[in-house]
Design a protein around this nucleic acid. Structure first.
Lengths: 209, 209
DNA sequence: CAGGGAATAGAACACGCGTTCGCGGGGCCG
DNA sequence: CGGCCCCGCGAACGCGTGTTCTATTCCCTG
């Protein structure tokens, strides 16, 4: 990114603070006053430079017609995703698509992506993988999985459209797929690949204590 | 909150959307145009009503001088906290106060509070509580704890200032405190209450897979 | 030293934009 | 019927505000 002069950096800082305080961009005159610039024309000059260098965007003939671009944010403000809790999942039980709009979690981009969603785990089928009843799993939609991934899988028990969703570890074996629970008291499920649809991978786990 | 007429609710909605799109409030004329109101005076009338009812705040004689109050936000925009990962913790080992500014997580207010911080767990001392090596625990600073809480405790082995930090379950017993690991191979620690300082409670657990 | 880029002043112009005032029309209720 | 509230129009006033132009000073560089 193109470098800024001290004065210009100072101006970006002021704009950022002003927005934080007022929820709207400052006027040219307000900028000038804050920076000790007497001439609005001169403020305009600085703004045009900032725009050319890409630190702000301007809208012509519009009051307060400027906005900070991503690069000029002090801390690049991590993306935060709104991850809805869309239902419950357990071994052998279908996802209850509750989709309660009240239930959702905010997660940074280390845990969630664009269209991630969360499911509340029901039961102890994954207990040996340290996934407990009541935990929240964050699911990233995916079509495929690697061996050992914890996935949300949909079993189309016959040719019907909808089947059972389940949370298991995925293992591809020759001509079949093994869906392995992490619970000694439960047996793995073996299924033909064409009877299985992977809904997504579990990318994170959250537990509230 | 005082009720709004349909038209007024519609206006709040538009303002909210406009801000979402432009990062600045609309002008009275823009509001009128969007809502099919020909007279700017009439828009002003509506705005004054909204202000009186507390849905917006206005600043007189200021272009785009309005802002939505908390109540008028569609989803009240959950608070998101920047939770720094300040170190590692294990049974019997002190917290390494790495405080790497690069490592932090963004968490919604269901998981974290104002001055929460996170620690990466080292070792398997809490494995039976389903807290694994490498997990992240979110700690809410606190002076006291209830029986059974998972706490970060500081053991001042003698009268010295600093001691060892450890992650354990807290149990008060008559004249002593039992710090219980969740690992059959480990023994509980018994300590006099005055040799123990509770740093905080573990309020959430996060694991990236 | 000449020249060019950054910083600045001052003034003027032309819209942008909030505010005010007067007027009219429905619907509801005592 | 006579208020009263919500909804709307239109116009005008006047300050808010972006834009443009002309000059000036300082510093750095060739």
């Amino acid at each position: 990114m193109e470098p800024l002069s001290d004065r210009q950096r100072q101006m970006v800082t002021f704009i950022s603070e002003y927005i934080g305080e007022h929820d709207r961009p400052p006027t040219n005159r307000e900028i000038g006053q804050a920076m000790g610039i007497a001439s609005t024309g001169h403020v305009d000059y600085h703004l045009s430079v900032l725009a050319k260098k890409g630190y702000i965007e301007r809208e012509a003939n519009t009051s307060r017609g400027l906005r900070l671009t991503a690069v000029s944010e002090p801390h690049p403000r991590r993306r935060v995703y709104h991850v809805p809790v869309v239902g419950r999942i357990a071994a052998g039980a279908p996802i209850e698509a509750i989709s309660d709009p009240n239930e959702a979690v905010e997660l940074g981009d280390d845990f969630a992506g664009e269209d991630a969603y969360a499911l509340r785990v029901q039961g102890t089928s994954m207990i040996e993988d340290l996934i407990a009843d009541g935990d929240l799993v964050v699911v990233q939609p995916a079509e495929t999985a690697n061996n050992g991934d914890v996935v949300v899988a949909l079993l189309t028990s016959d040719a019907s459209e909808h089947g059972e969703a389940t949370l298991k570890r995925y293992f591809r074996e020759r001509d079949r797929v093994r869906l392995q629970p992490a619970n000694r008291t439960m047996q793995p499920i073996y299924v033909q690949p064409d009877r299985l649809r992977i809904q997504g991978k579990v990318v994170a786990l959250i537990r509230q204590l």
